[in-house]
Amino acid sequence: MSEAWILARKELRAYFDSPVAYVVLSLFLLLTGWFFSTGLFLENVASVRRVFDYVPFFFLFFIPAITMSTFAEERRSGTIELLLTLPVRDWQVIVGKLLAVSVFVATAIAATLVYAVTVASLGDIDFGATVGGYLGLVLLGISCGAIGIFASSLTRNQIVAFIIGFGIIFVLYLVDKVTDFVPGSLATVLQYLGTDFHYRNLLRGVIDTRDILYYVSLTVFAGLCTAYSLARRPE
């Protein structure tokens, strides 16, 4: 575990040493800020609800953008060979990468606490929904991060990694929205598989272990897929 943390610290430093992190973070805050402040100033609604509604949609682009380099760049430059011949297990490397992505995503989410504090100071805030929403965002961010890392492990091209990551996250985001067109039993399954469905549950302020378990399972599953992909040691 300590090796994973050493790697995570190195990855985080790389994020914050490069302009990419700041561009992505600024864009994220600009978008969420715009939706929050139009609600606040144009519609006189002091609520974080709109931010919560839109963030999963931003994650579609935001998460693949920060994960696309994780393994693809190591493969392109060949540093993966040095990384994987260090006396560490592949899973420690994967956990390290995921830790770094999680901290980065958490930083972005934490920055939106400004809106929650604003709302709380202007009026009543729905405490349960806010806590549920933030928990949902963190879980959603981490599981999508794991998917993005898996996508990055499949290719040596960052753009391809972005597109694959976006594709998978997009399908999981949409899958519970097509339930009207499929038979009932399948609909339940599809609904359960959807990332947004569980997020909506948490957003209601009801913290259910089933929803948490879903995100944990999704993260572990994506991690296992990454491990499988790395074990093939493609050139």
Binding site: K10, A14, D17, G78, T79, L82
Partner: peptide, 21 residues
């Protein structure tokens, strides 16, 4: 493999390194 990696120093072809560091 892990114990062997501890005993070996390796420089791969083209010297891959992290350019930003």
């Amino acid at each position: 493999a892990l114990e062997i990696r501890r005993r070996i120093g390796y420089l791969p072809e083209h010297t891959p390194l992290y350019p930003d560091m």
